[in-house]
């Protein structure tokens, strides 16, 4: 009897949690999809209903063609920003994590405390503009890349250093005895072994940089080098009566993180919940 009651209770719990979580977390995404598939006037009613005329692909095409393909340009710029930043972050952070973990000296502990500050302090925005302007990088993609690299490296170094500790020293020492130079040890032996942690760093930071809004808002104003987050933000005013296009835009820019999530869920979850804390 109790066993049956338990099973029934569990089924009820299942059903209720599924319904509540479904409503709270899934309905907003369905709403985005439905609104992005409607005609202008129908979308403006904000109803949670099926579109009478399914025109998602027309809406997406219109968003991409809007203002001579400004959205396409933004997608391109965001790709350069993300790929450029990630390449530098991975390479430079791995170099630091390698020496820092293997040689736990005064330099390493100094670097550790500086990184802690980088992890918790927000950037000083106007002084950063001042610095960028003085070295000629204000309003350039390269300037924004440098800022993203600087603010993301502490997280990357901590994640890579933690993984570095699991690679036995004997492996590098064997290579050293065989006559390998520091660069050879790093590039041929350590970097390939760091692969799982590097994947975590790549997926977590690329989602963060791709989604960054304040960075481009301050350091990359102007139409020609706009990124996707900023484009969508400026569309809010231009599309006020065209909610179907605004939501088609929301849908388009949500696809890259969704793809990342489908392929790298495990790395993203562990990278975001573990790496960030252990200083």
């Amino acid at each position: 009897m109790t066993a049956i009651r338990k099973v029934l209770a569990n089924t009820w719990l299942d059903a209720i949690s599924l319904i509540v979580i479904g409503i709270v977390f899934v309905v907003p995404f369905i709403f985005i999809f439905l609104t992005a598939s409607k005609t202008g006037p129908e979308a403006a009613m904000f109803e949670f209903s099926l579109p009478t005329n399914f025109q998602l692909f027309d809406n997406i095409r219109e968003v991409l063609e809007f203002r001579d393909g400004r959205m396409l340009l933004a997608l391109w710029n965001s790709t350069i920003l993300t790929v450029g930043s990630i390449t530098l972050i991975v390479l430079l952070s791995a170099l630091v994590a390698f020496v820092m973990q293997r040689r736990q000296d005064r330099v390493a502990s100094l670097a550790s405390s500086i990184m802690l500050a980088g992890l918790i302090l927000p950037p000083a925005v106007v002084p950063t503009i001042f610095v960028l302007q003085n070295i000629g990088l204000y309003r350039t993609l390269l300037g924004l890349i440098m800022v993203e690299v600087a603010v993301t490296m502490p997280f990357a170094i901590i994640t890579l250093r933690a993984f570095m500790a699991t690679i036995p020293r004997e492996i590098d020492e064997a290579a050293i005895i065989d006559g390998a130079s520091p660069m050879q040890v790093f590039f041929r032996i350590v970097l390939p072994l760091l692969r799982p942690a590097i994947i975590t760093v790549i997926v977590v930071s690329s989602v963060g940089i791709y989604n960054d809004f304040a960075g481009p808002l301050y350091f990359l104003p102007g139409a020609e080098n706009v990124t996707v987050q900023l484009t969508m933000y400026s569309f809010i005013s231009q599309f006020t009566s065209q909610w179907h296009l605004l939501f088609a835009n929301v849908l388009v820019i949500t696809i890259p993180p969704l793809v990342m999530f489908l392929f790298f869920q495990r790395q993203i979850v562990s990278g975001m919940t573990k790496g960030a804390i252990k200083g």
């Binding site: 430079l92 952070s93 170099l95 020496v99 820092m100 330099v107 500086i114 800022v147 603010v151 790093f186």
Partner: peptide, 13 residues
């Protein structure tokens, strides 16, 4: 090996 990262972090943060 610290230097490239340190330069970027020093200038931009």
């Amino acid at each position: 090996f610290y230097i490239p990262a340190a330069i970027i972090f020093a200038i931009f943060f």
